[in-house]
Design a protein around this nucleic acid. Sequence first.
RNA 1: CGAGGUAUAGCGCAGCCCGGUAGCGCACUACGUUCGGGACGUAGGGGUCGCAGGUUCAAAUCCUGCUACCUCGACCA
Length: 492
Amino acid sequence: MAEKLTSRAEDYSRWYIDIVRRADLADYSDVRGCMVIKPYGYAIWERMQRILDDRFKETGHVNAYFPLFIPKSFLSREAAHVEGFAKECAVVTHYRLKSDGQGGVVVDPEAKLEEELIVRPTSETIIWSTYKNWIQSYRDLPLLINQWANVVRWEMRTRLFLRTAEFLWQEGHTAHATEREAIEEAERMLHVYADFAEGVLAMPVIRGVKTPNERFAGAVETYCIEGMMQDGKALQAGTSHFLGQNFAKAFDVTFANRDNQLEYVWATSWGVSTRLMGALVMTHSDDAGLVLPPVLAPHQVVIVPIYRKDEERLRIVEKCHSIAASLRAQGIRVKVDDDDTKKPGWKFNEWELKGVPVRLALGPRDLDQDQIEVARRDTQTKETVGLSGDFTAYVQDLLDTIQQNLFQKALDLRTRMTREVSTWDEFAAAVNEPMPGFLSAHWDGTAETEAKIKELTGATIRCIPLDNPQEAGACILTGNPSKQRVLFAVAY
RNA sequence: CGAGGUAUAGCGCAGCCCGGUAGCGCACUACGUUCGGGACGUAGGGGUCGCAGGUUCAAAUCCUGCUACCUCGACCA
């Protein structure tokens, strides 16, 4: 049984990596645990960036940039924070190399740094040491800043997009005058993430809070969105933290309130990373490759011309470009694949692997009859549509339909993979099934029980959903009284 | 850090057991025929067989050591 599960996980792992590679998104680099994001993968990430960045701006945030290096001493200012990250930090100890006299180079022992620099695993410390100088009065608050950056966490084991030694992300860091305002901010950004996941990525997510065990190092409360992947494992897709006054106290960031009293500021931080790319792949892909939701897709429509003779080619390619122009006029992102060195069949496969939502194919037959072949990536169906009507409106409708269909399919799958369990035997059996999914179960609320369940089954509490219904019950492990069910899952 | 595995052309692999001219598929180049679901033919180009030692007339192959990477655990977004 265990062997079967392992091989199933391996199969899925291979399937995932195969899609990432064949869709030309990314690959491992020559550096251990690091990833090269290829142009097509990066184009998708850029779409995510652009859409998220707009939403950050709409909610009053501005972008800035803070250093890659953090003095070692900064990290230890907040006790929980250092404990959470110390084990996975890359450290810069020297600033110079020298020739070894044999054509190679060695680290120059003379060039040792007085204080080592940490390559940021996250930027709270460097940012709060900076905020100290920016904040004096309540008039300086709230401070609402985001940065797009790379961070490094020296993970033991890596997986393309889901866990790499270096990854790209955005991290928002805000300072507020009141606790209430900071909590509202943390919750607001959680909903920005959730709306993005559901509306753009077409990935349904559970909004919730983490248990103390799973909280961000240094946070008072960690909010999260949790997605369910096609293999029945959960993926944390974004987090938003209410940091209380922990960092303000650690970095001595105070402000004078209206009564001229000094108070510590209240903080939040929130982030999503290139892990979203992995979530995207694992939510929608099928055996023919990646499937992109139209709102996100860099190319929403690809047009493939089909021809035999040169004079046919001219007419058909011209028609393709004219269709593309009318679609673009309505804001649809269109690619005409008029590469003469590839055959149509090759292009069909290629764009399917890359997940383009709608493919149009135009050949001599279509040209004569003023029609075009329309293929949907999500359902893998084809139909022939006349060009005489409002074709642009037809395509726009189709894109909307695909977007909704992808979300609905993912939601249906998640619903099927979510269930309530009441007894330990039921729980343990469910975790061992090939597709465990979300298990809603009673928990006595203690960290010990949570740790024990993880040890026994590998399942963790993914979150306590927001607005979770209160319901008396008995903990599945200890039988102790419980006030509510929480969501367990095997997670990435 | 534990347990397994791998290292041979850009990619994927065979060859190793049993030492004797370094191969196959894909990709690449040229020409021709093709072009409505990853075309075919012909001709080509491309290699210090991970590194360092050892055994041998002779090492991709046998022996010793090292290194790197992958998968699965532990850890983690």
